[in-house]
Design a protein around this nucleic acid. Structure first.
Lengths: 141, 141
DNA sequence: AGATACTTGACTATTTTAGTCGGGTTTATA
DNA sequence: TATAAACCCGACTAAAATAGTCAAGTATCT
């Protein structure tokens, strides 16, 4: 199990944005330079974040992005959700009627993965963008 | 983020093994049939489990596998560890000297992934094979 | 007008995953 | 001792996911 870079980048970029988002919008170019993330890739990510109303875009020269809510109200769950970082631990559920592995019953470990999923979601639900910004408050770039 | 089937299969197979591991070794063929997992794939998985001394093999006719420790002593961490299901959430650490994303400093979210990793490992550390067997005690196959 | 920056969608190389396949070796038992 | 059951091992591969790139826009500030 591992986190993909899309989810990581989304969080990194938003922490960066939250730190510099005071008066002016923050351009993806700046985030790209500061965080070492490809600009094109950031555009993809922010397109998703915008659709889920986590950020707002400001077009044109001197444009960029601003947070659409207070950093405190943006939970990590929301971010992962927006970029399709699926915190699904198991595929069983997809297969409609049938249970796991195409069987008629739930697999021996079905409940386990449910528990794990809840455990992880708890973690992400409790953490807000503000928490992360505070942790990095003393750091320079 | 998601769990791969190798890790899931390993746990499923071991729960199955633990349930039937009374006197005689359990053959992979039986596990394969009961759990709907490819025999060839199971062999790969059990080869790793054996190397990490989670199971013991009994070769020859009527052979199979037995647990190498008590079910209570086998934690899920051990299992995932054995099959290389990496519960690493972030790549940063690989890059030796340098920090994250090839930068000189740790990325803004570095601590976050550390915390998450611990959170998940906690979960796996607390759960033993025995716990899972008990949960399924009343079920038939 | 020009520069900056967002917007969108298609494309692609690489890596990982989830196996398969083919050839062994070992050992119980008939 | 032949045979079949079962482990053992390494190489191979198809499919999916990932991590981007690329191209061609549109909007807005100065």
């Amino acid at each position: 199990m591992k986190l993909t870079s899309k989810g990581r980048y989304a969080v990194m970029a938003l922490v960066d944005l939250a730190r510099f988002d005071n008066i002016n919008p923050v351009s993806l170019r700046d985030i790209s330079l500061r965080q070492g993330i490809s600009l094109d890739y950031l555009e993809q990510i922010f397109s998703k974040l915008r659709k889920k109303e986590i950020v707002q875009s400001v077009r044109g020269n001197q444009g960029g992005y601003v947070l659409n809510k207070k950093a405190k109200e943006i939970k990590l769950t929301n971010i992962f959700d927006a970029v399709d970082e699926n915190v699904k631990t198991v595929q069983c559920k997809k297969e409609s009627k049938k249970g796991c592995n195409g069987r008629s019953t739930k697999c021996l470990t079905h409940n386990l993965w449910d528990e794990l999923e809840n455990h992880i979601n708890d973690f992400f639900e409790k953490k807000s963008l503000e928490d992360l910004v505070k942790e990095n408050a003393e750091r320079r770039i």
